[in-house]
Design a binder for these strands. Structure first.
Lengths: 340, 340
DNA sequence: CTGTTAGCGCATTCAA
DNA sequence: TTGAATGCGCTAACAG
């Protein structure tokens, strides 16, 4: 800033009161005489005084910033997450401090560290590379730290997560209910707990329907994006299995699937039905619009932000869990399979 | 935070030195004896000391936060913008403070205000509702404030913007070069300077090619998204003009156009070619993948962040402008028009 | 090379 | 109801 910032002292001097009084009217707390308050407020407005948040944070030992740790802002899923958390911020006069961490445990630790340096009391952390142990340690040190899209039993009340298993089951059931029995799954190759859980849900739903799972019906993409989807579908097609329905790990992969099928002259949904997961806004960009499982990231992030803020300034030891459910969004990429 | 944070005093005490010395080794500046430095560093590591950034900001009168003001994180264009700025942050040991402002001048002013309270010296501002005058005033007060996607002659050296006119011209020329002469434009209804400029570019290119512009070939969408695109195309189709090429205000509208045409049984690009603007990642989700003008937001945002940081701590009065050029990305939504 | 001193802007006792 | 004093954690002269 310019250096010529107005301080509480300036206001006090001009208003002819003490800094304590100014402080009181600024924070609207403590007893202040009515006329005195009006007088001070007038000076504040005239001078355009804005409290220095750094000083406030220093003395009060906590900042009003909500920290968010995500891999990357430009990935739609995380942008939505950030957006959800950010909304809460407005209501609480908090600010959002974004700290991105991509690709490694160290990066994530650094991001948290950066937030700690800011004395950021409330943090929403989407970790992809830290072990449960590390996260528990962190949680112990930072009361306002909350984990999104992750479940750790020992600190369940600090976790906001999604029932991926049920989600995958519902998606699978949808395909089954539409008459599909030759169902393939496009998953991600990297070790990702969600992918494993969704695969489990898929298996369960198949079992429950009395369908025997052929392992050759599971294919993996290197990356969890469009390219990964294309790659996996290519591999799937190469095997020559009969398939009428495909469950993709997420919308991005699902769209890759649709594109690759299209490139092979296979129509979606006429020849093969495809279902995604996440319900990113991108899912309606594709033709046909994607039938998918809605992942309520935004709501979850808002919830997480609220929880983080609450935990950061009161030791709420209520032990409860925060589990969200995905739900089916029917659009145009899945239709009834007409058995011949 | 927990309250049990380690301070510089703790380190000083344990290491048996003064706080100044600790401060020096932390900031790696000033002369410190080799062994002394090692000793202090050791204590820092052991105690896990992390400097309080708020205190640092307070005394040094500026924070190492880069402020970003955008309408909404969840809009892909702005997410990319934030991402570009964020990258610079890593290199400079800065943090990103996001302040969203949606819909009104007051919201934008509040967002800036919030950043000012943080003594945020460097700010990248994407304004949609403030007048040039207001922005000039702001710029005067905040040396490190920089405007992205906006041009104001008086403070041109603080503006990072795109040549929308040339972009629209290039897009139009592309259509013309592919044999299209019956070209329509889908623009946005709200007053948006970019839309106007792009429209001008379109007209210019048409003129230069000796094509007479029929005003009924311009149609507007209420919102600059998929729905706006659909709405506008519906209106266009209703007029029954012959059209073989459509230029959309942006990718979102272009995708809406493709969808609506598809719903009418009109094929893209076989029947009508469509070209977008922005080159958002969503543009490849659509079938056919969108031919579009690449808007280098990420690069521009990085550039802007750099500029903001530089301006914030040195009065660089170099008067230069920062104009970026969009360029054509050829994909599948535009093909040669075969005149019959 | 290292320590001492004096604030940065503010909130919070404690008196008055 | 108000003000004076104190200190948050840190940096920046200034001494030594």
């Amino acid at each position: 800033m310019n250096g010529i910032m107005i301080t509480i002292k300036d206001v006090a001097r001009v208003a002819g009161v003490s800094t304590s009084t100014v402080s009181r009217v600024v924070r609207k707390q403590g007893k202040v005489g009515k006329v005195c308050r009006a007088k001070v407020q007038k000076v504040i407005d005239e001078l355009g005084y804005r409290p220095n948040i750094n000083a406030q944070a220093l003395v009060s030992k906590k900042s009003n910033s909500l920290g968010i740790v995500i891999p990357k802002v430009s990935m739609p899923f995380f942008a939505t997450l950030a957006c959800g958390a950010e909304e809460i911020t407005k209501e609480n006069d908090f600010r959002v401090l974004i700290s991105t961490a991509y690709g490694s445990e160290q990066a994530e630790l650094d991001a948290i560290d950066s937030l700690v340096q800011h004395r950021c009391g409330a943090i929403v952390f989407h970790s992809m590379h830290c072990s449960d142990e590390i996260l528990c340690e962190l949680a112990e040190k930072i009361p306002g730290l909350v984990f999104i899209n992750r479940f750790i039993a020992k600190i369940a009340h600090r976790c906001i997560w999604l029932d991926n298993n049920m989600g995958a089951q519902e998606a699978t059931r949808h395909l089954i209910n539409r008459g599909h029995t030759n169902i393939a799954v496009i998953s991600r190759k990297d070790v990702n707990p969600d992918a494993q859980v969704r695969l489990d849900g898929f298996r369960t739903a198949l079992n429950n329907a009395g369908i025997i799972l052929d392992n050759t019906m599971i294919e993996y993409g290197t990356t969890a994006d469009m390219n990964g989807g294309k790659e996996a579908v290519r591999a799937l097609l190469a095997k020559g299995n009969k398939v009428t329905g495909i469950l993709a790990y997420n919308d991005l992969m699902a769209i890759g699937v649709v594109h690759e099928l299209h490139a092979h002259g296979i129509r979606v949904p006429e020849d093969i039905s495809v279902i995604g997961f996440d319900d990113l806004s991108i899912s309606v960009a594709c033709i046909p619009e994607l039938t998918t499982m809605h992942y309520p990231v935004r709501e979850m992030a808002s919830y997480a932000a609220n929880l983080a803020i609450k935990l950061s300034d009161s030791v709420d030891s209520t032990v409860k869990t925060h589990l969200f459910m995905p739900h089916l969004i029917e659009r145009d990429s899945v239709i009834e399979h007409l058995s011949i």
